[in-house]
Amino acid sequence: MIRHIVLIRFQPTVSPAVIEDLFAELHQIEGKVTGLLSITSGRSESPERIERGYLHGFVADFTDWAALEAYQVHPDHKRFGARLVVHAEGGLDGILVFDLAVQTQGSPT
């Protein structure tokens, strides 16, 4: 499984309603990309408080790298990504992406 982790540092002027609308748009892609297992999104609730401004984010789980690639080229993802960049602090500089191959129980290491 591939875990696609995206952290966003929104511009200070972006309202909670806009952020909620962005995440609602993101979730609309569920069921449209083969191999997309789930999307979880929201605001950090970390008691450690070391987010360094990346207070919002989402995690999308995919069956494999091909499914992640299909998501990346999907027109709904491209539209969402463009909106996200517009609202992120510094544009693309306000977005951090980390893709992790996750070993599931019983799979080879």
Rank of each mutant, 00 (worst) to 15 (best):
I2T: 05
R3S: 11
R3V: 11
R3D: 09
H4G: 13
H4A: 10
I5A: 02
I5S: 09
L7S: 00
L7V: 00
R9Y: 00
R9M: 05
R9I: 08
P12I: 05
T13D: 12
S15D: 05
P16A: 11
P16M: 05
A17Y: 01
A17P: 06
A17V: 05
I19E: 06
I19Q: 03
D21M: 04
L22Y: 02
F23C: 01
F23G: 07
F23V: 02
A24P: 03
A24L: 07
E25K: 14
L26V: 04
H27T: 08
H27C: 09
Q28W: 03
Q28N: 14
E30D: 10
T34P: 02
T34H: 00
G35S: 04
L37A: 10
L37Q: 08
I39D: 12
I39G: 00
I39M: 04
I39K: 05
T40E: 07
T40F: 06
S41A: 14
S41T: 08
S41W: 03
S44G: 03
S46C: 02
E48P: 07
E48D: 08
E48W: 01
R49A: 06
R49K: 06
I50D: 04
I50W: 00
E51W: 06
G53M: 01
Y54S: 05
H56Y: 14
H56N: 12
V59A: 10
V59T: 15
A60E: 10
F62P: 08
D64F: 06
L68N: 12
L68I: 08
E69A: 14
E69D: 14
E69F: 11
A70G: 15
A70L: 13
Y71A: 09
H74P: 12
P75N: 09
H77W: 10
R79W: 05
G81W: 05
V85H: 02
V86Y: 12
H87G: 04
A88H: 02
A88P: 01
L92T: 15
D93K: 10
D93A: 11
I95H: 00
V97T: 12
V97G: 10
A101Y: 12
A101E: 15
Q103H: 13
T104V: 14
T104W: 11
Q105Y: 12
G106V: 07
S107D: 15
T109Q: 15
